[in-house]
Design a protein around this nucleic acid. Structure first.
Lengths: 229, 229
DNA sequence: GCTGTATTCAAGTACTCTATTGAATAGTGG
DNA sequence: CCACTATTCAATAGAGTACTTGAATACAGC
């Protein structure tokens, strides 16, 4: 166990950790991970969502795969990418936490885009769980139907944000609403809350998104909604 | 809230997160963060420990500072670097967790350097806490005295690994030992366990290091040992 | 086997990051 | 004020990365 051996060990050890760091060093790759935290998806659909060419998205996805952060599954013509491990979600959450603690810029960017989000206050996850158990709340999943089908908060109904206006008439006016979406920086839930409140309904957004709920070990379901349409 | 606005928002948002990723993309910087998780240190001392030139270490430290992961304090001729926030420790821990889950290489590298660590089994943190409360264990902090002074497990005594051989005669032979150090990939605790067992003592290492213990919110103390010498 | 499509590969250019070297800066102690 | 030291800055060459373009691959359906 010479000094040189020891140095070589540390270089190799931290070299492995840096593989992960390198994979996290690109805005596009981080956005891809956030999308894959919802559900597996094809290259083309991911490329369209992040506003990059298919070839470029494919390259980034392969970089993530080389870093063992994602896996693939082939189905006919399509290659589906998915997160390789639940711990990846927690790694992304840890990144988010540090950024929120330390980057004033982040707060500025978010305020500029969302306006002041402090009214109404978001509902915390444990509070939503309590209210859901008492049954005095309607939980809206505002994500695309595919993502709802791949997993959603137990008891939530699927109302993709683009369908909300059309389906408003079928939603009760008396009950309070809690809307959620992909995560704290996703706009869907904010838009849903805004639309619901315009119609006189009581509505708040959930503090986190579905991945946060899931990795906290709170109750989830999969499959399509019996009320869908 | 046009599509273009939305894209610009996401680009800026993930750009901020990627600042963190970029900072984590270098083996040297990750090693520096692990060292700073123990205590604040000067540039030169960090440079020597990671085996890099002072100028090079300084550059990496400045990169970490630009990413807001570390802060500095000037004292006379020396600049002391320290972690900017406890959440940084948890970010490093999240990196470690994913690497352990996904990288078989990591396990190989560790086995090659440490040999088979499964004998004796490391003690988990909650178990050590229980045993410490009953008082039937001697907790050894094998890190350099400076790091012990900056913070250590409550009740631990400071025996830097280089002093252990010399101080063996003053350590009781009847009690069981638990040694800890900087973290799971630090050799000090393993070396201490090996030396203690050679003298017929019962000894195990702690599963994590001091930063893990601290960020788990378990009891800690600061200051020099009354028994030091 | 042929056609059409999703994905990957390969090549090229522009850009960024890394480590080294030697000089510049800022502060201490005489 | 001077000598000394810890740290940072500046300049460099080399390595690695990002995005684009166009071709190659692999598979489904006919």
């Amino acid at each position: 166990m010479s000094t040189a051996d020891h140095r070589q060990f540390k270089d190799r050890l931290y070299g492995q950790f840096a593989r992960l760091g390198k994979a996290l060093a690109s805005p596009h790759r981080l956005e891809l991970l956030d999308l894959l935290a919802q559900t597996e998806r094809t290259v083309e659909s991911l490329a369209a969502e992040i506003g990059a060419s298919t070839a470029n998205a494919s390259q980034h996805l392969q970089a993530l795969r080389r870093a063992s952060l994602v896996d693939t599954r082939k189905d006919g013509l399509f290659v589906y990418y998915r997160l390789a491990d639940p711990s990846v979600v927690q790694l992304c959450a840890a990144l988010r936490t540090v950024a929120e603690q330390r980057y004033a810029d982040l707060d500025l960017i978010v305020r500029e885009h969302f306006g002041d989000r402090s009214d109404p206050e978001p509902v915390q996850m444990d509070e939503l769980l309590r209210r859901a158990r008492k049954g005095d709340v309607v939980i809206l999943d505002t994500r695309p139907a595919r993502e709802y089908a791949a997993g959603h908060i137990a008891g939530a109904i699927s109302v993709p944000i683009d369908d909300l206006q059309r389906r408003l008439r079928n939603l009760p006016k008396s009950k309070p609403y809690v809307a959620y979406c992909r995560g704290p920086y996703c706009v869907y839930a904010d838009q849903a809350v805004s639309q619901l409140r315009k119609t006189g309904r009581q509505a708040q957004r959930l503090a986190g998104g579905f991945p946060d709920w899931k990795s906290a070990g709170l109750p989830i379901e999969t499959g399509v909604s019996p009320l869908a349409g």
